[in-house]
Nucleic acid binder design. Structure first.
Length: 933
DNA sequence: GACATCACG
DNA sequence: GACGTACGTGATGTCC
């Protein structure tokens, strides 16, 4: 193309700053591996450019294109109004060095890159758009900035690239209530808090549009302001006429910026691999380099990302572990001396010793403190006289202890002081213990959660493990102090001579770990994860666990009795069918009956040589014989009885009449919570009989249980991460997602969908989330492996983004040793490079982790915000079940709660991540959990 | 304490 | 080309 820009030509103008900020906020803070240079925004920017290049081909492709950037912070607008954009936040520290790199990226993609000192990008865009229009061509502005909307019309359009939404004259009218030529008038009246444009106080876009439409334009309006009927509005306009005129000058774009190039200089050029490849390699973008190299059909360059020098571990003062630094605190004066030291320091490591592991029933026995490595104390409070003094044990307290109340009274102000940081290992435990004593510990840090944020997937995060690994020290074991089995004692029976070094050491270790971890969080780039997804969960979960949920013992007990009866009946029947009596609960004995004595078809399992008698095997055998079917029935009832109706009764707290689970925050590698003692995340729901267990989970008299759950959250996240347009579109329309998949895959119109076809598609959708394999799908659907593989191939063909996601994720895991969620949580994948069968496991886990982990992050964010959101409602959050939150609310306030909680849950990604797919939350309510779910 | 089994998302 | 396989959890009962 060599003719001058004119009719038939199409100019694209990309708002560079919008791309940069979007890239920066959408991505976790990545750094270049070799030297730690922050490049997250550059990476996102390049991805967006690449996506732009890929999608803008064909009939409507641009003939001319440029990316326009802002330059300098001082523009002519600051000359007329010194407060213009004065309330903008400073640019983030790690974004600043990336700005010049985005210019280089644009040039590397062989796209024109323009900026002009003293002018905003918007002015350059305005100038070029007007030129294009006057020369008879078209122009598309790729931005969603409302300040640019005044340019729309006569061949100029805007395109919101994120939402893939075109904005024409009608779109502008929708936004402003006027057509583009009057947009500046409306903006001048309404002002803009983001750019700090004053406007007229008390007048928003709605009112502004109303006035402009009535009077024609701004000048006429200001001239005839006296005629306005509403007295307040009239006065505002008369008083602020000058300010409004100034505002118009600020929002009016300069269409005559002195550019030193013409439209003809912006002609579209094809990418030049010799420019682009070296740049991408320099940035060390492995996956992107590979992907673009494939598109351009060139060899990807070698990427050298060996660190220039190994990152240095911080110098930690080496203080040997020595019991000499540990002391007992037994008097007011001794405790006061420690409190003084804490105030001097500003932080303290705290650990509590109790009579048990259950925070709801255990009693506080003593408290240990440390403010300096090697220096720690233990404050024993209710230790009993040693049993050697009194053979029969005694309730008399040991000598040399402070009264519990007195000690807590002295410590309460410290533990609640907002200026003193309390450091603990698994602080949720200590928080709950102190809360029962009326003390609200805050603010806190938690070494277990720091380790989880940094090392998730690498190893566990218990204190013994962390001490061993990061301090090279083996802590004093608890076993010899407490004993085990029947003769085990509680910590209050441990002699003080043993208790002091043990307890003090825990505080010492915690402090040392904290000193090492605190600065490392930043280097590992998980500060935001720790601060927003880990630490804030501690008080929220502590509160939920303390609240507990009411469980009706009679309901459970009645069910237990009924189960006993049917089990006895089934057992007799099974023995009859087997021809002899045996233990139905023993897979070993069952295997012998089925395969040796009855010679039913089935084989051994390699590892232990035992027959497999899992539900899937028995289901297959059920067609041959009645015995396996009866065993399946027996097992289902046995499970329900032993795990649920029996065990759950033992967990009802005598004081509260409620069941209090404990959530582990750092248990699951993906970021999910885990529930223990009892596990309330696996209460039956899938079968009718099982679901009845949930009838025992009830609301208090006068209250209602409300359940809210995310609909298809993992598939929605997949649609976003893997960028699957068909899936996104289906979610936008609110389609049956599995039916849509089936229709797409098997070429069946939606109207002719059968449950069987849909079932298959559903299995494939879930399979994808788990890192699909032909074998796994075949087993799940009970179809030949070749057929399953055919389905998968077809799926990849119809949704190519999925395969790209899977390949990219595996490659990323291999390169980095971890994968990450949209919110920056890192899940390490140490086995990803393994050879042999291990490799498949690690790869599938790596594919699943970002999806499951992002979903976990989302609900964590919702939970952290929930207490403030429902503060004014008579409601409490009780349980979390991965994608569901359960509340108890006073009758009458159900709808208010649902509205408030739903808002928080659906907006949980804001403002860090903008999903292409909406999150949707379903709600239910009732007197028990079976109804509410 | 390992293993098999099965409850949930 | 073969390995072996769906992802993430916790609780219970059997058996050694």
């Amino acid at each position: 193309m060599s003719t001058a820009f004119g009719k038939g030509h199409h100019l694209h103008l990309i708002d560079g700053s919008a791309f940069i900020f979007r890239a920066y906020h959408a991505l976790p803070p990545l750094t270049r591996k070799s030297d730690g240079l922050p490049i997250g925004a550059v990476s996102g920017f390049c991805n967006m450019l690449q996506r732009y290049v890929e999608t803008n081909t064909g009939d409507d492709a641009p003939t001319h294109v440029a990316v326009i950037f802002d330059k300098g912070s001082h523009t002519f607008r600051n000359e007329i109004y010194d407060q213009y954009k004065a309330n903008r936040d400073e640019m983030p520290e790690d974004l600043r060095p990336q700005i010049p790199l985005t210019r280089r990226a644009t040039e590397a993609f062989n796209i024109a890159c323009k900026e002009l000192e003293g002018y905003e990008a918007d002015d350059i865009i305005a100038t070029l758009a007007v030129q294009a229009r006057e020369l008879g061509g078209r122009c598309t502005i790729i931005s969603s900035d409302k300040d640019l909307m005044q340019l729309v019309g006569d061949g100029v359009e805007m395109l919101d690239a994120m939402k893939n939404k075109r904005i024409d004259r009608d779109g502008v009218f929708e936004k402003f209530g006027v057509y583009p030529d009057r947009v500046v008038d409306v903006q001048a009246l309404a002002g803009d808090s983001v750019d700090n444009v004053p406007g007229a106080p008390g007048i928003g876009i709605k009112t502004a549009a109303l006035l402009i439409n009535e009077y024609g334009d701004l000048d006429a309006l200001l001239e005839r302001a006296e005629e306005i009927k509403q007295p307040k509005r009239r006065q505002t306009l008369i008083d602020h006429a000058e300010q409004i005129r100034l505002s118009r000058k600020l929002v009016l774009l300069d269409e005559n910026t002195p550019l030193e190039f013409t439209l003809d200089d912006l002609e579209v050029r094809t990418p030049d691999p010799d420019q682009l490849m070296p740049f991408l390699a320099e940035m060390e973008f492995r996956t992107l380099t590979k992907r673009i190299a494939e598109k351009l059909d060139v060899e990807p360059p070698e990427i050298d990302d060996t660190p220039a020098s190994a990152p240095e571990a911080p110098e930690i003062e080496e203080v040997p572990f020595d019991r000499a630094g540990y002391s007992k605190v037994g008097t007011i004066d001794e405790l006061q001396a420690w409190i003084d030291r804490i105030y001097e320091r500003g932080y303290v490591a705290v650990d509590t010793e109790t009579t048990g592991l259950n925070e709801m029933t255990a009693d506080l026995v003593g408290i240990s403190l440390s403010v300096e490595p090697g220096q720690a104390c233990y404050i024993p409070l209710i230790h009993k006289k040693s049993s050697s003094d009194d053979l029969f044990g005694s309730d008399d307290l040991a000598e040399g202890q402070m009264p519990l109340d007195e000690a807590l009274e002295m410590l309460k102000p410290v533990l609640e002081d907002p200026s003193i940081l309390k450091i603990g290992q698994n602080m949720k435990y200590d928080l709950k213990i102190f809360a029962r004593g009326g003390i609200t510990v805050s603010p806190i840090d938690d070494t277990m959660l720091m380790s989880y944020a940094m090392h998730g997937g690498l190893h566990g995060h218990g204190m013994d493990q962390l001490a061993e690994r990061y301090l090279g020290h083996t802590p004093i074991p608890i076993k010899p102090l407490l004993g085990s089995g029947k003769s085990a004692i509680t910590f209050d029976k441990v002699p003080l001579d043993d208790a002091v070094p043990y307890a003090a050491e825990d505080a010492d270790i915690t402090l040392r770990l904290w000193q090492q971890f605190k600065p490392s969080l930043h280097r590992a780039q998980v500060t935001r994860v720790y601060e927003t997804l880990e630490r804030p969960m501690v008080p929220v979960l502590a509160q939920m666990e303390r609240t507990g949920i009411k469980v009706d013992r009679d309901t459970l007990s009645r069910m237990s009795n009924a189960f006993s009866q049917s089990m006895a009946g089934l057992e007799a029947e099974i023995h009859e069918l087997a021809g002899r009596s045996f233990n139905v609960g023993s897979p070993k004995q069952l295997g012998e009956i089925l395969f040796d004595e009855m010679s039913l078809p089935g084989g051994k399992k390699g590892k232990t040589g035992a027959y497999a008698t899992g539900a899937d095997v028995l289901e297959d055998l059920a067609t041959e014989h009645e015995l396996p079917a009866r065993v399946l029935d027996w097992r289902q009832i046995s499970k329900l009885k032993s795990t649920y109706t029996d065990a759950l009764q033992d967990h009802i707290n005598a004081e509260t009449g409620r069941v209090h689970t404990s959530y582990s925050i750092a248990g699951a590698s993906t970021g999910r919570l885990a529930s223990t003692d009892p596990n309330l995340q696996n209460i039956p729901v899938r079968t009718e009989e099982g679901r009845r267990i949930r009838e025992a989970f009830v609301a208090e008299e006068g209250k209602t249980l409300v359940a809210l759950d995310y609909s298809q959250i993992e598939l929605r996240i997949l649609a976003h991460i893997a960028d699957i347009p068909a899936l996104k579109e289906a979610f936008r329309r609110g389609d049956d997602i599995h039916a849509m998949t089936a229709s797409e895959m098997f070429d069946v119109p939606m109207e002719e969908m059968t449950p069987e076809i849909r079932r298959r598609a559903k299995a494939i959708n879930f399979g994808v989330i788990y890192g699909i394999s032909g074998f796994g799908l075949a087993r799940n659907l009970r179809i030949p492996r070749s057929e399953a593989q055919g389905f998968i191939d077809r799926y990849f063909e119809r949704f190519p983004g999925i395969r790209a996601y899977m390949d990219d994720t595996k490659a990323f895991a291999k390169d980095h040793g971890y994968v990450q969620t949209l919110f920056g949580r890192r899940i390490h994948t140490p086995n990803i490079g393994a050879k042999g069968p291990h490799a498949g496991f690690a790869a599938r886990a790596a594919i699943n982790a970002p999806i499951q982990g992002t979903a976990a992050d989302v609900i964590r964010r919702a939970m952290v915000r929930m207490p403030a959101a429902i503060e004014r409602l008579p409601a409490k959050m009780l349980l979390q079940v991965h994608d569901e939150l359960l509340f108890e609310v006073e009758q009458g306030a159900e709808d208010d709660l649902i509205a408030a909680a739903r808002t928080v849950m659906e907006a949980a990604c804001d403002p860090v991540v903008k999903l292409d797919v909406q999150l949707s939350v379903d709600a239910g309510q009732g007197e028990n959990w079976a109804v509410a779910h």
